[in-house]
Computed example of a mutant assay.
Amino acid sequence: MDVQQLRHRLACEPQSVSSRLQASDIAAAEQKVEQALAWQAASQHHFIVTPHSPFYPPLLAELDDAPTVLFCKGEIDSLVAPSIALVGSRDASRNGLQHAYDFGRQLAELGLVVVSGMAAGIDGAAHQGCLMAGGRTLGVLGTGVEQIYPKRHRKLYDDVMQSGCLISEFWPDVKPYAGNFPKRNRIISGLSLGTLVIEARRKSGSLITARLASEQGREVFALPGSILAGDHQGCHDLIKNGAKLVDTLADIVEELPPLLRAHLESLPIEPHLTKEDSSELPFKTLLASVGYETTAVDVVVANSGIAVDLVLEQLLELELQGFVAAVPGGYVRLKRS
């Protein structure tokens, strides 16, 4: 892309990347264009993508407010593959993080790209689950692509760049600004065939992404949780208003476009596309006595009818296998199979 083409694009784009060009701003704008082109030339993994690029996400291009310019770092072909967005609370529970990780992993195993916002909590767990399965993931940033936010995601930032792509409509050096994060949500949902919300309170920013997905004509999925905890109220409201209740990957796959669904269902990954079978679970009686909310050891003993010393032994084995986790006040169940 030459300077004139990029200058034209930036002159037409929304405020998120460049202010509207006035006559007196031409020199400053050209300097920014040159800086952007220098950034792109600095690495073979730096890209400036416009709607005329073959790598511009096709679903995103359908939006009336689609970004005029995307700054990208990583494997650019990840932008055009079928994808599902996973979003949720930054202050997620242990179960919520496990669900995000598991769905990220399972989607990656099917060959779908996982899209999220690189935030703490559900976003980070979804990216990590995808990467653990060797999949591709897109991190849509509320900063420039040269900014790592939150700082503790430095390794995740590098891993996403190696196995997927980091994306932003903001100039590469733009620092965190609270108003920019809601703006990027339309890109998360707009890139994706559907958005799964995992653990969201009623005022969660994830509900903005879900609303945008619905307005964009995309699928909206929600994972239910305990009615006693406020962490899931946003998800329950989404389900009441028409979002699809999800408890397995099959619930997502069956809502995908027919040709893509037929392809995915033909893949040899049957366990993830069927309802879970608990017949092979270890210590089934004990495991059934541990809830998805904190369960005290004496409650586990009472419900299972097993001696306390054996309960403690089996709980340790289940914890090592990843079925339960020790938390203050007892144990919580992490997965069904």
Rank of each mutant, 00 (worst) to 15 (best):
M1A: 12
D2A: 09
V3F: 11
Q4S: 15
L6T: 12
E13V: 02
P14C: 05
Q15Y: 13
S16N: 00
S19W: 15
Q22M: 14
I26P: 02
A27R: 05
A29Q: 02
A29M: 15
K32A: 11
Q35E: 15
Q35Y: 12
S43Y: 05
S43L: 08
T50D: 01
H52S: 04
L59W: 06
E62M: 03
E62N: 01
D65P: 07
D65W: 06
V69G: 08
F71D: 08
K73L: 07
G74F: 12
D77I: 03
S78T: 15
V80Y: 03
S83R: 13
A85E: 04
V87Q: 11
V87C: 15
D91N: 14
R94L: 14
G96D: 01
A100K: 08
Y101H: 15
F103W: 03
G104N: 13
V115G: 10
V115K: 08
M118E: 03
A120E: 13
A125M: 06
G129A: 09
G129E: 07
L131A: 00
M132H: 15
A133F: 02
G135S: 11
R136H: 08
L141E: 01
G142R: 12
Q147P: 12
I148P: 08
Y149S: 05
H153D: 07
Y157I: 01
V160E: 12
G164L: 12
C165V: 09
C165K: 08
I167P: 12
S168D: 09
F170I: 02
P172V: 00
D173K: 15
D173N: 15
K175S: 00
P176R: 11
P176D: 07
G179P: 09
G179F: 08
F181D: 08
F181E: 05
K183F: 07
K183S: 10
K183I: 14
R184T: 06
I188Q: 04
S189M: 12
G190D: 10
T195D: 03
T195V: 09
I198R: 08
R202L: 10
L207P: 05
L207Y: 04
L207M: 05
A210E: 02
Q216R: 01
G217N: 08
R218N: 06
P224R: 06
G225C: 00
S226A: 04
A229G: 09
A229I: 08
D231V: 00
Q233I: 06
H236G: 08
L238E: 11
L238W: 10
N241P: 07
G242Y: 01
L245S: 14
V246E: 00
T248G: 11
A250W: 07
A250T: 05
I252K: 13
V253M: 08
L256E: 12
P258V: 02
L259R: 14
L260A: 04
L260T: 03
H263D: 05
H263A: 02
H263M: 02
E265G: 02
E265C: 00
E270F: 06
P271S: 09
H272F: 13
L273R: 00
K275D: 00
K275Y: 00
P282W: 10
E293N: 07
N303L: 12
S304H: 10
S304G: 04
I306E: 14
V308Y: 11
Q314F: 03
L320R: 13
Q321M: 11
G322P: 07
F323D: 00
V324M: 12
A325L: 03
A325Y: 01
A325W: 04
V327C: 12
P328V: 00
Y331H: 14
V332G: 01
R333E: 05
R333H: 04
K335D: 05
S337L: 02
